[in-house]
């Protein structure tokens, strides 16, 4: 059987597992409600303001949800001893990890897309002109900007899930997986940026290096790409963000690196 078909068999198992796990369903619903709450609280009246309102919450909520969906995916099989059974079947580490990732992504992406779709719906169906910091730039507000934001958020979701799957493959116990997941989420949301700020204030790096260094954090890379591709020049940035190239490279490295770690650690070849 081809690697792709084997991966699909594994992916189907992962997707079904998600559908039959009540905790996951509650978390998915909670994600949609929280995102909706942000939109309603902001009273957003345009696509561009919606992007600006959502980018920061997404930086936090997407990694949280991705880790909830993925941090135990492989580890639970290992903990149960089932991973050893699976190893005796004719499938490669790449097929298995790829299948786990795709199956979990198939469950995760609809949740993110539903939340963003409902947010866009709020813009479409909300009457009146809501006031926003960028509303005077109405000529550049268009659904295509929001679609770019959605596309970048989908990519960011995939990267966050890849990191979660790597954690699930590397951890030796459920407790260790949870501990690593918590540390990584904190690092992604706060740690990387805080470290760069500390290095800047300490004189270890200069302001010129900020654009590149911030791309090392997937959150900063995502933020930079959103500002570059979905917001454009209508928003004056208060802090340096990665360039298009650096941001793309940063996310790609995290994605490939994380899945590489998962493949290397899932079992001995």
């Amino acid at each position: 059987m081809s690697r792709a078909r084997t991966a699909l068999v594994v992916a189907q198992r992962e997707f079904t597992t998600l559908l039959r796990t009540p905790t996951i369903l509650v978390l998915a619903l909670g994600f949609v409600v929280v995102v909706g709450g942000f939109v309603l609280a902001a009273g957003t009246g345009g696509y561009l303001p919606l992007v600006l309102d959502l980018v920061a919450p997404m930086e936090i909520l997407v990694p949280l949800l991705a880790f909830a969906f993925g941090y135990r995916a492989i580890q639970s099989d290992a903990d149960r001893g089932e991973l050893e059974t699976i190893q005796t079947y004719p499938l490669s580490r790449l097929s298995f990890v790829g299948g786990v990732f795709l199956g979990r992504l198939a469950g995760l992406l609809p949740v993110v897309l539903v939340a963003l779709g409902l947010s866009a719906g709020a813009v479409v169906f909300t009457p009146g002109d809501a006031v926003s910091v960028v509303v005077r730039h109405g000529t550049v507000d268009a659904p295509v900007l929001f679609l770019r934001f959605v596309t970048l958020t989908v990519l960011f979701t995939a990267v966050a899930l890849a990191v979660a799957v790597a954690v699930s493959a590397a951890a030796r116990s459920g407790r260790e997986a949870l501990a690593i997941a918590v540390v990584l989420v904190i690092a992604l949301v706060l740690g990387f940026d805080a470290t760069i700020v500390a290095a800047l204030s300490g004189g270890l790096i200069g302001p010129d290096a900020l654009g590149t260094l911030t791309a090392l954090s997937p959150n900063s890379a995502y933020r930079g790409l959103v500002y570059t591709l979905a917001v454009g020049d209508v928003y004056t940035r208060s802090a340096p963000t990665p360039s298009l190239l650096a941001g793309t490279a940063g996310l790609t490295l995290w994605f490939v690196g994380a899945l590489g770690v998962a493949v290397a650690r899932v079992w001995r070849e």
Binding site: T6, V9, R13, T16, T17, S76, R80, I86, Y89, P90
Partner: peptide, 19 residues
Amino acid sequence: FRPQFTVAETLQFYADLTG
């Protein structure tokens, strides 16, 4: 085995892995 699956589903998963 994964507790979310039935006996037949579990065996079907492993059968599918053999191709």
